[in-house]
């Protein structure tokens, strides 16, 4: 019981963080067809910017400034990099972001060093909120929860209730038509790319001190974000949300299941001493998202909620 409660609680928070990362990527991916390999690098940049800004002022300032900075960098990348590569096709675009991820990693190492930095939770949030089954529950996690939910509401409002949101939604499904209607589609692209990066940056600001801020954080986060986007379905924020929650909970709760394959398939004669029988569900947890990805793409290539094929 305790394990389930903890897994759910942490799974939801992790899922929200994943959604924060993947919402930007979904917007970019569905609108421009670009799978931005460097998306997790912007997440990392957010964490490092926040660390530096926190050093000279406060965490609260960093919470606002760092995502904006990351967004501006994202816009620059779109304007001077991606747009130029666009003519060479999707593969070239994808490879461009692939190389960009490399580059950002290296530059981060030059500026902030090659090991982890001491980016800590601010003192004002560093206390125990409540005790659950004998374990302290840090307030910062609840704070993360609220930031993520606030962002979610803001994003929903933006997309569904404002004019900009309407244009973006239209451009998601019919980019050419939007262009024909006289909207500046390149500007919309640039804005969406920047906003997507800023969301990733925000995830970095609140995720960096929850996890560890080091140059490897982008590589560790990267593939899983793709999985969320593809599983969720193209052009569907709702799908991305469901997929993020699913994978967040799947990853945090499957690790606490100790049953091995022999326990489950023992009736088929699988011996617990054999190499296959030994495998536990918890050790398979990190592979589940990828298994899900492969299965979903084979069975339903539009993803959970999408209406277009990837």
């Amino acid at each position: 019981m305790e394990t389930i409660v903890f897994s759910l609680l942490n799974g939801v928070i992790y899922g929200l963080l994943l959604f924060m990362l993947s919402s930007g990527l979904t917007l970019i991916f569905s609108m421009m067809g670009v799978l931005n390999f460097a998306h997790a690098s912007f997440y990392m940049l957010g964490a490092y910017f926040a660390y530096t800004i926190m050093g000279v002022s406060s965490f609260w300032l960093a919470l606002f400034i760092a995502p904006v900075l990351v967004g501006v960098i994202g816009m620059g990348v779109e304007k001077w990099g991606l747009r130029r590569v666009h003519a060479n096709g999707h593969v070239a675009e994808l490879l461009f972001t692939f190389g960009l991820a490399y580059l950002i990693d290296e530059i981060v190492k030059i500026i902030w060093g090659r090991t982890s930095v001491n980016y800590q939770v601010p003192d004002s949030l560093n206390f125990t909120l409540f005790t659950l089954y004998g374990a302290d529950y840090p307030a910062y996690r609840i704070f993360m929860f609220f930031v993520a939910v606030a962002m979610l509401i803001f994003l929903w409002y933006m997309l569904k209730k404002t004019r900009i949101g309407l244009i973006i939604q239209a451009a998601l499904t019919h980019p050419h038509m939007v262009g024909h209607l006289g909207h500046n589609v390149p500007l919309v692209f640039m804005g969406v790319f920047g906003a997507g990066c800023a969301l990733a940056g925000l995830a970095g600001v609140i995720g960096g001190n929850y996890f560890i801020t080091d140059p490897a954080m982008a590589v560790q986060m990267g593939p899983i974000v793709f999985v969320v986007v593809v599983v969720g379905g193209l052009g569907s924020l709702e799908g991305a949300f469901i997929a993020a929650m699913l994978i967040g909970i799947l990853q945090t709760s499957a690790v606490s299941i100790n049953a091995s394959l022999a326990d489950i398939f023992g009736f088929l004669g699988l011996s617990p001493a054999s190499e296959v029988g030994e495998i536990t569900i918890s050790s398979m947890a990190p592979m589940l998202p990828f298994l899900l990805l492969v299965l979903i793409l084979i069975v339903k290539p539009t993803g959970l909620m999408g209406d277009r094929e990837v």
Partner: peptide
């Protein structure tokens, strides 16, 4: 636990 894949160890700590 899986190698280099676990993001949140709280269930284990629990």
């Amino acid at each position: 636990h899986p190698l280099a894949k676990v993001k949140d160890f709280t269930p284990y700590i629990q």
